[in-house]
Design a protein around this nucleic acid. Structure first.
Length: 110
DNA sequence: AGGATGACGGGAG
DNA sequence: ACTCCCGCCATCC
């Protein structure tokens, strides 16, 4: 189990996140076979500027975007998520895979 | 060598 | 919802 093998595994896991859905750093780590290594996932994202990588589909377990609210990256990530139709309420993405109900959609702040 | 720092997480109060 | 606090571990002073 080389260091690169794990890195590759994590990148693959991120690439496999379906369009319009999200996963937390911890979930990615777990699915990649390295539970408890959320920080490693973040680190790998930091130094992989791969354009084909859906980095915007990875968020905190709380559903929050990991960047400061006013940062460039924050806006970029938020825009990409919205573009994929991901529902965001009060700055938090709905982590549930369940389809949001009518009320949630109707009352969601613009 | 040792302390501080992260695109983090979970538990306790 | 919010604050501390600790586990985690690669990196950087």
């Amino acid at each position: 189990m080389s260091k690169n093998y794990i890195k590759q595994k994590i990148l693959d896991t991120i690439r496999d996140i379906p369009y319009g859905t999200v996963k937390s750093y911890g979930q990615v780590a777990e699915d990649a076979g390295v539970p408890g290594r959320a920080r490693l996932v973040a680190k790998i994202l930091t130094d992989s500027a791969d354009v084909n990588l859906p980095w915007h589909r990875v968020l905190r377990s709380s559903g929050q975007i990991a960047f400061p609210k006013d940062s460039e990256m924050y806006l970029e990530q938020r825009n990409r998520l919205v573009a994929e139709g991901v529902l965001i309420v009060s700055g938090k993405v709905k982590m549930s895979k369940k389809v949001p109900d009518f009320d949630a959609l109707f009352w969601a702040p613009k």
